[in-house]
Design a protein around this nucleic acid. Structure first.
Lengths: 105, 105
DNA sequence: ATCGTTTATCGTAGATTTACGATGATATTG
DNA sequence: CAATATCATCGTAAATCTACGATAAACGAT
């Protein structure tokens, strides 16, 4: 039972890439986080409070979802005094898109 | 809100699509399941036992991961006697690719 | 009919996720 | 300085996930 590596794919077959891809998918694996990403895409930048007003969730819960997306590298948070301005990390999203394209073709 | 294209694909704006997309991402949100998808892409079709031999996991665990992918619609399982032959659901993967493309642009 | 092979499902521990309110941290405002 | 506003973090309960072994189900072969 020692061997674990399923080989045969350019780029995404190794363990590290599979885990990176899985971690991004996992972050997108909740409807609320998908909505946050979609919202960020539509307005470019926003504060945490803007999202709280948009969703039927407590502020702490939204903050937790934002942290999840940030840990996965999908969004960036820029502290501006007591506020935090969030926006998409477009290069990471592009990397994700490329990985998915490789999956579908 | 009128962001509908020729194919009728509305992206991730409505609630239903966000949940469908999240469910697919969630299924891909585990390294083992990513590896299974990659393997299926390379080999086209295979049995559950083939995957069990390649992973350091119990048969029941692999079967559970396969069920997860099947429930998300990403793979199909065709029963052949006591065996089950698995393969990718390419139309679903294409739909997933389209949704991700919509996210990245 | 019984045995062996293959896979799915059950039961279940332990870990993780998700939600909340409460609290802490940081800056702006009065 | 005190009060307010904004957000992150802590502590938590409930739900879900992940892994396993044991068992059941389906079928081919003997």
């Amino acid at each position: 039972m020692g061997s674990e590596n399923i080989t045969g794919f350019r780029g995404l077959a190794d363990k590290h890439s599979a885990e990176l891809f899985a971690s991004m998918c996992k972050a997108l694996g909740h409807p609320v986080r998908v909505k946050i990403i979609h919202y960020l895409k539509s307005i470019d930048r926003c504060l945490c409070g803007d999202i709280v007003e948009l969703l039927p969730l407590a502020q702490s819960t939204v903050s937790q979802h934002l942290k999840c997306l940030k840990d996965a590298g999908l969004i960036k948070g820029e502290v501006e005094g007591p506020k935090t301005c969030y926006c998409l990390d477009k290069s990471m999203l592009e990397k994700f898109t490329m990985m998915v394209d490789d999956l579908g073709r």
